[in-house]
Simulated assay, not measured.
Amino acid sequence: MEWIAWIVASLFFAVAFLGLIYPVIPSVLFVIGGFLLYGLIDTFSSMGWLFWTIQILFTILLFGADTLANLFGIKRFGGSDAGGWGSTIGLLIGPFVIPVAGILVGPFLGAVIAELVITRSGFKQALRSGIGSLVGFLTSVIVKAAVMIVMIGIFIFFVT
């Protein structure tokens, strides 16, 4: 049964990393889901309170880092809250409208359009906000990928 548990957990981990490209997939929840399904199929005996405490702390870190990195990028480049909301909407819609490039184009255009339409910012300032959204998003993806790799590494350490 252990090999089945590894296959199922690995599939969940793969979906989690796919969530870095398609942000509507809640990456960290799939990582946690992989842990839970492994435990249900094989055993939870090696995943004690220390394991779950560490994983919960990393999960909280991921949720916070995701939100803060995007907002920081936009604010750092002089964008407004409207740019932040536009970027978030673009991040959710972009990958579905433009399958590969939409992950970068969506947040950028969302921030630019929101700055132009809602805050009536000049075009130059709207572009700066769009660039800030890209910087924030890319920072968030890198941080999330690194934290998820650490989480999975800790999982492997505990169960092997």
Rank of each mutant, 00 (worst) to 15 (best):
Thr139Lys: 04
Leu40Lys: 08
Val100His: 09
Gly39Pro: 01
Thr67Met: 08
Trp49Lys: 01
Asp66Gln: 06
Gly33Leu: 14
Ile113Trp: 12
Leu116Arg: 14
Asn70Asp: 10
Ala111Gly: 14
Leu57Cys: 04
Asn70Leu: 13
Gln125Glu: 15
Thr139Cys: 06
Ile56Glu: 00
Leu127Cys: 10
Gly136Pro: 08
Val31Tyr: 07
Asp66Trp: 02
Leu57Trp: 01
Gly39Asp: 02
Pro99Ser: 12
Gly132Arg: 04
Phe35His: 03
Ile56Phe: 09
Pro99Leu: 12
Ala101Ser: 10
Leu138Met: 13
Lys124Thr: 13
Trp52Cys: 00
Val100Ser: 12
Trp52Lys: 01
Gly86Cys: 09
Val117Ala: 15
Val100Thr: 13
Ala65Pro: 02
Tyr38Pro: 02
Ala65Cys: 03
Ile113Gln: 13
Val28Phe: 10
Ser121Asn: 14
Leu68Lys: 03
Leu138Pro: 04
Gln55Ala: 02
Leu71Gly: 04
Gly19Cys: 14
Gly39Arg: 02
Phe58Ile: 04
Ile118Glu: 03
Gly102Arg: 08
Leu104Asn: 06
Lys75Asp: 00
Leu91Asn: 11
Leu127Arg: 08
Leu36Cys: 04
Leu36Asp: 00
Gly39His: 01
Phe35Gly: 03
Tyr22Met: 09
Gly79Tyr: 10
Ile21Val: 15
Gly79Ser: 12
Leu116Trp: 13
Gly110His: 14
Gly122Arg: 06
Leu37Asn: 05
Leu37Met: 14
Leu116Gln: 10
Ile131Asn: 07
Gly132Phe: 06
Trp85Asp: 06
Gly79Thr: 12
Gly106Lys: 11
Ser87Leu: 11
Val24Thr: 14
Ile74Gln: 11
Ile89Tyr: 13
Phe44His: 02
Ala65His: 03
Ile103Asn: 13
Gly136Ile: 06
Ala82Glu: 12
Val100Gly: 07
Thr88Phe: 14
Val31Asn: 06
Ser121Cys: 11
Val112Glu: 13
Lys124Ile: 11
Leu71His: 02
Gly132Cys: 05
Gly94Ser: 06
Phe63Ser: 03
Gly136Thr: 08
Phe44Ala: 01
Ser133Cys: 10
Leu68Asn: 00
Leu36Phe: 09
Leu62Gln: 02
Arg120Phe: 11
Pro23Tyr: 07
Gly19Glu: 13
Val97Ile: 15
Gly64Ala: 07
Leu62Val: 11
Leu71Phe: 11
Val97Tyr: 07
Phe63Cys: 04
Ala65Met: 09
Leu127Val: 15
Leu91Pro: 01
Tyr38Met: 07
Ala126Ile: 12
Phe58Gly: 02
Leu71Ala: 12
Leu40Ser: 05
Arg128Phe: 08
Leu18Ser: 12
Ile118Asp: 07
Gly90Trp: 03
Trp52Arg: 01
Gly90Lys: 06
Leu91His: 05
Ile131Pro: 05
Gly48Asn: 05
Trp52Asn: 00
Gly132Tyr: 04
Tyr38Trp: 10
Gly110Gln: 13
Ala82Leu: 10
Ala101Leu: 15
Gln55Val: 04
Thr67Leu: 11
Phe137Leu: 15
Ala82Ile: 10
Leu104Gln: 06
Asp42Tyr: 14
Phe44Glu: 01
Gly86Pro: 10
Trp49Ser: 05
Ile93Gly: 08
Gln55Met: 09
Gly84Pro: 07
Gln125Trp: 03
Tyr22His: 08
Val105Ser: 11
Leu50Asp: 02
Asp42Glu: 07
Met47Thr: 01
Leu116Ser: 09
Ala111Asn: 14
